[in-house]
């Protein structure tokens, strides 16, 4: 079968590596997810639709998608600046700064959540000064955005950085020789080259933010209709023995994401 599927090659190990990959993926990923989808198939269409389109659930989608989008946009802008600064400029402590970017990958989300709420609660290190101006971060939608920005921060930086390093200086120089000013060069030469990496980083940060739970529950007010994210709602439903409702929302999100992912994968590994 393998031979019919693939083009001939001298490199060995196709059958065994592909076989193991499919076996492991099947056991750990495909069967469980198929289980979830089958579980929701036990519901009638009306029940399913009611579960995923309830007003409270829709409000949570709005918050989850909206906050994830804003957080990913913040990361797109600032992540690009950070990557640019790290690749193109010299300053003291650059190596440490560069290393620190990975912190949200390495720091557990629950720890991050507790740390962020300690900072941004109205009694916190930063929050008390903001509170003077009537700005509240913890327990508001802004708090959700702060947490999601934190966890998505490395994605844009780390996808843009290598592309920027490999970027051919000659194209910039050519552009300069032909009389373009720096701004035009950045807009016409550098930005287009960075665009795929920027989009990838943005998509990754967005997807990660959408499912985030650990850090957000500490800093969000968890108020239904206002500061309740979808993952929390899924947990709340499960805790009330409403597995069908929880599974329905989970499956609905999953189908949306799989579609998005496939679109992205088809772009990424053409």
């Amino acid at each position: 079968m393998a031979i019919a599927l693939r083009q001939p090659s001298v490199i060995p190990g196709f059958g065994i590596t592909l076989g193991f990959t499919i076996f492991y993926l099947g056991l750990l990923i495909v069967i469980p997810i198929a289980g979830l989808l089958l579980y929701t198939l036990q519901m009638s269409w009306d029940d399913f639709w009611r579960a995923v389109s309830d007003r409270q659930v829709v409000a949570s989608y709005k918050l989850s998608f909206g906050a994830s989008l804003i957080a990913a946009l913040i990361n797109l802008v600032f992540g690009a600046i950070v990557a640019w600064v790290l690749v193109r400029y010299r300053f003291t402590g650059k190596r440490i700064v560069d290393a620190l970017v990975d912190l949200p990958f390495a720091m557990p989300t629950a720890v991050a959540g507790i740390a962020l709420v300690t900072l941004y609660a109205s009694t916190g290190w930063v929050g008390q000064y903001l509170n003077v101006y009537g700005i509240r971060i913890a327990y508001t939608q802004i708090g959700v955005i702060v947490a999601l920005t934190y966890i998505g921060l490395p994605f844009v930086v780390r996808t843009v950085q290598p592309v920027l390093e490999d970027l051919d200086k000659e194209a910039e120089e050519a552009s300069a020789i032909m009389g373009a000013n720096r701004f035009t060069t950045i807009r016409r030469v550098i930005l287009p080259a960075l665009l795929p990496a920027l989009l990838t980083g943005f998509a990754l940060a967005f997807a990660r933010a959408l499912g985030e739970y650990g850090s957000v529950i500490f800093i969000s007010g968890n108020l239904p209709f206002r500061t309740e994210i979808t993952p929390l709602l899924i947990v709340a439903k499960a805790e009330q023995f409403d597995y069908a409702g929880a599974a329905a929302i989970a499956a609905f999100l999953l189908l949306l994401l799989i579609n998005g992912l496939q679109w992205w994968a088809s772009r990424r590994y053409r």
């Binding site: 709420v117 609660a121 009694t123 916190g124 913890a138 327990y139 968890n222 108020l223 805790e239």
Partner: peptide
């Protein structure tokens, strides 16, 4: 303003925050 999922979280919100 804050609806914690469990009792202890709510105490923390009132006392600590």
């Amino acid at each position: 303003p804050v609806l914690d999922p469990a009792a202890r979280g709510a105490t923390n919100t009132f006392v600590q925050r």
